[in-house]
Write a protein that binds this DNA or RNA. Sequence first.
DNA 1: GACAGGCC
DNA 2: CTAGGCCTGTCC
Length: 345
Amino acid sequence: MDYRPLLLDALETLFQKEQAEKQRFKALAYQQVLRQLKQHPGPISTYEDVAHFKGMGPKIEQKIRELLATGSLAAAERAKAAYPIQALHELQRCYGIGPTKARELTEQGITTIDALRAAVEVTPRLLTDAQRVGLTHYEAFLERIPYSEMVEHEDILRHYLPLPCEIVGSYRRRAESSGDIDVLIRVPPSNTISLAQMVKTLQEAHYLTDVLALGAHKCMAACQRDESSTPRRLDLLMVPEEEYAYGMLYFTGSDRFNVAFRQYALERGYTLNEKTMKPLADQPAPPPMNEEADIFTFLGLTYVPPNERMDARQILPLPKDANKRIHKRPVLSAAFAKINRQGEE
DNA sequence: GACAGGCC
DNA sequence: CTAGGCCTGTCC
């Protein structure tokens, strides 16, 4: 008997319930187990199938054991009676609607995207400008963007932007699809062009169609290659030259690779974020990093090309003897490559 | 100007 | 303890 579908439903329910009750860390705990369950390919028939998951404490263990033994979970059933779980889930898939707004809407009797669309026709101020854009493009923003289309966006952006830029995220890791388009713009000290000006240029080219948020350094927007193509989520980030290498490393991910990378930096006495690297104690301050590879070298790490950046397994000290490198470097297995292709943002 | 909500 | 910062909108 495969309890995987029941387990997914029960844990998703409890995740929504904790979110509705603003129990951030409880929600996080369910989310962590849910993510691993979704990645787990095979059926779940005994507790041993999930015992090795990260973040399995006594509370979640008890709940899973109950579901495996009885086929249902009392806590999840109670949550379903107390909250419109399905409605909260559906509404939160809309860009700009989080737990609070979703709960507010369900309390007004709005429980589906269709109902929300009808309500917003009558009362536009039910949502903010950005949320209305999210609602308009609800289906489109849930779609994934094929790699081949990402290449086209890159061409368009390079054509219109007056500064060097790169699409980062899972696209740079060569994932076969991406969730959105993350663009880093390299800003030299001499720069006089504002982000607002660049946004205007992209709007006049009829590429950028909606602005969700626009500040001095960051723009969140929607874009389209042409009138008939699917609208996509676009993020533009202005990054000063001296921070660019750190920005590239950070926004290229993957998340797990970043966590491992920052942990390793800590062991070497440095704290790392998306802008810079600082010495912890009496370490020397790092020199300017012109490109990503400089950061690897400075920390004594073997450079990892973006498409191999998956998790801690790629964090390897530089070999003392270059000849040994051939034997020390693990070969990318098909299974690893598959994980990478999932292309989480 | 502080704070909350949401996103990355 | 589980990130921290950016942007928007609201309230006073």
